[in-house]
Simulated scan of single mutants.
Amino acid sequence: MAANMDIIDPVTVGVVFGSALTISRVYIPTVIINQLRLHDFHMLEVFLTASASSALIMLGFEKMGIAKRSVRSKSSLHWFSDYDGNIVGGAILGIGMSLTGACPGTVLPQLVQGVKSARATTIGALLGGTVYAKFGKSLTSSSHLSKDTNAVHTQPLTISSKFNISLNSALISFEALLIAFTAVSVLYFPGKAFVLLPTVAGGLLIAAAQTVSIYLTSSPLGVSAAYEQIGSYICWAIGWNNVPQPSSPPKSILFALGMLVGSAVSGQLLPPLTNSGMVPVTNLQALLGGFSLIFGARMAGGCTSGHGLSGLSAMSYSSLITTTAMFGSGIFTQWLLK
């Protein structure tokens, strides 16, 4: 029975999350690209609402003894900082977002919903996962070994510990900041394109998926590991046997399959999208961007969902750095492309 639940639970979480991304319309390439151009704030409003809600959900589950907050570890290349893997990986991920109009999670609804660039993005993402599975782990380290002190830290650094404030103070500040930004965005910079429901409601749908994920699997949302797991299987298939096999059952892949199912089912309930107003994404852009999405996400130790949604909500300092690098790089890349 337990073995069956190890399969059913991640699929169920994926169904809920895939449905939430599809219904909120945050998966549409134009929505993501126009957010990075600072023209349309639909994505920001959904993202901030989901993050603020997820932080309360995580704290509530921790207080009830159901699941501890999953604070994200740092990723180190040991080039210029203990967090240089988060910085460089986040920047590469942001470039991929800007090129494709996707993030590792939204690639899957794009594929199901027939977005033209989605196939090329998916191929690039699988290539990125395969290359990272083979070569990437030799670049990064999450052992928490400090170059300066050679001391091993027992716990990943949180925002509250970094700035020497209490968890309650950090959480209150986090909630107040996100609510204020969301309110200003909704009042003065509302999302304009492809809106099916209010952006705050879309964020609450994603937060509901976070609730289901923590309750059923004791783990927060995160997608990019699925591409690395598939990449490991591809490595084995072509004879690179020195790559570790994913755990059995491969929960991240099952989660991704659930997302495909959830998007397919929920998409049938929605009015079809038109190409009017869509920002074009070429196949070359999508292929290169898809590779950047996954290679960057795995280098940083998480993606838009893993760091930006779950990691920030758990008050992870590494997630703050990664998310800043991700969106900063994405905005700068769009500025260069224009």
Rank of each mutant, 00 (worst) to 15 (best):
W335S: 09
L197S: 07
N241K: 14
G114H: 03
A120I: 02
S70W: 14
N4G: 15
T333V: 13
T12H: 01
Q245F: 14
S185I: 06
L287K: 13
G258F: 06
G328D: 05
A91S: 09
S19T: 09
Q210K: 02
V46A: 00
G306I: 03
S173R: 08
C103T: 07
G124H: 07
E228S: 13
G128I: 07
A52S: 10
G258S: 11
E62Y: 03
H153D: 13
S142K: 11
S319R: 01
V186L: 15
C103R: 01
H153I: 11
V265C: 12
L204P: 09
R69A: 14
I206M: 08
L93D: 04
I172F: 15
R72S: 15
V279H: 06
G328Y: 07
T130E: 08
L221D: 00
F80Y: 05
L336V: 13
K74Q: 06
W79Q: 12
F80Q: 03
C235K: 08
A91E: 05
S252W: 09
I206Q: 00
L270C: 01
Q35C: 03
E62V: 02
V26Y: 00
K116I: 14
L177V: 13
V212W: 03
T158V: 08
P250W: 04
S24M: 01
V200R: 11
K74E: 06
L260A: 14
G258A: 11
I238Y: 08
T199W: 05
F17C: 02
A176W: 06
A20N: 03
A67Y: 03
A325K: 01
N4Q: 15
Y27T: 00
G296R: 02
T304G: 06
H78W: 10
A118D: 01
K134V: 12
V31P: 00
L139N: 09
L167G: 07
L157G: 11
